[in-house]
Design a protein around this nucleic acid. Sequence first.
DNA 1: AATCTACCCAACCGCCCAACT
DNA 2: GAGTTGGGCGGTTGGGTAGAT
Length: 233
Amino acid sequence: MGRQPCCEKEGLKRGPWTIEEDHKLMNFILNNGIQCWRLVPKLAGLRRCGKSCRLRWINYLRPDLKRGALTEAEEDMIIELHSRLGNRWSKIASHFPGRTDNEIKNYWNTRIKKKLRLLGLDPVTHKPVDETENSAAENEEIYQHIISKEKETDYQTEGAAKSGFNEMKNISIFDVPKENSEMGSILSKTTDESSVNFSAIIDGHDQFEDPFQNWIASPLQWDVFSNLEENFP
DNA sequence: AATCTACCCAACCGCCCAACT
DNA sequence: GAGTTGGGCGGTTGGGTAGAT
């Protein structure tokens, strides 16, 4: 008898999460906490696998997530930790509050690995490999090229974020840049009701009747999450 | 303008392990 | 001790995007 699947696959939705789904999950967890991931989709009214909900929460919805590109210092630390811990991404991620193992793993696979190879280092052992294809000077030249390209990219990304627009198709409630929280938008929480009730006030007046629509549409006052336990006992 | 290619990253899959029965 | 279950982890994939041709 083989292992049973973690959940019924039939009738389950897969693929990218919608804003509505994000909302349902976020709202459920903030109101109820996490006891059993298997039950979360059922109780939250989602047609998703419990594992999928967990992943979405951990990698994307968690309020304490740190967003934006990894810094050079973080990158150096990842390399150092990887040389000691290997591909134990969750262990590595535990040294970076607000970063996820998935994020670090992706960063490693798409960038650091490449850089190490170009520098003539084996990404697995971190030791020099035979420089049969490129000389050290050539490697250095390519590496500098990558660095300059990355700086260009970072600058562009930062500029786009500051403009207040996010053209990503899969935009989420958390894609709004933090800087915009200063634009007169307030996310307030009404605690004198049985359930948590968010109401966003944009430029002094309500724009939507549905508080969740407000939540989606308005830039967040991020500080509300800094004392989460106080807000959601 | 259209097509191709490389890259990025969110999401999924399957395995492992600890806790429980 | 064996079987079951749920959570966690690492590897992989597929879709979207940007840049090159």
